[in-house]
């Protein structure tokens, strides 16, 4: 299925996704968008794992299984994050990170 596509293309794709995620994480002010950026980073890592496994170590499936673990954990994390964000919305009436600055040194 991936014949003719070199490994580098996958790595470039995942690196791009990783840095788009980092950029979104640092610049966005909406909590949901920050959560989406984190998911983007995790998925870029998934591409890395699957590509390395498929091209470099095709006889063992370790990378694929690690990806399954990451997907499951990311789902749990997203569920907790949404709960936290709903709670923040109830208390602050906003999901902008800049409104949540009660504590300062």
């Amino acid at each position: 299925m991936t014949e003719g596509i070199p490994l580098n293309y996958f790595l470039i794709l995942s690196t791009l996704m990783f840095f788009i995620g980092i950029y979104g994480f640092l610049t966005r002010r909406n909590l949901i968008t920050i959560l989406m950026s984190v998911e983007l980073i995790l998925n870029s890592v998934n591409i890395n794992f699957v590509a390395f496994n498929n091209y470099l170590y095709p006889d063992r499936l370790q990378g694929h299984f690690f990806t399954l673990f990451i997907i499951a954990v990311a789902a749990a994390e997203a569920a907790v994050a949404i709960a936290i964000i709903i709670n923040i919305y109830r208390n602050f009436k906003s999901i902008n990170v800049e409104d949540a600055n009660e504590m300062k040194y």
């Binding site: 995620g21 994480f25 980073i41 890592v45 954990v73 936290i84 709670n87 208390n91 600055n101």
Partner: peptide, 16 residues
């Protein structure tokens, strides 16, 4: 609430 959110953001970034 703020503590939990800050912890979550930093924790998930560290995981990534």
């Amino acid at each position: 609430n703020e503590a939990s959110f800050k912890y979550f953001i930093m924790g998930s970034f560290a995981t990534a």
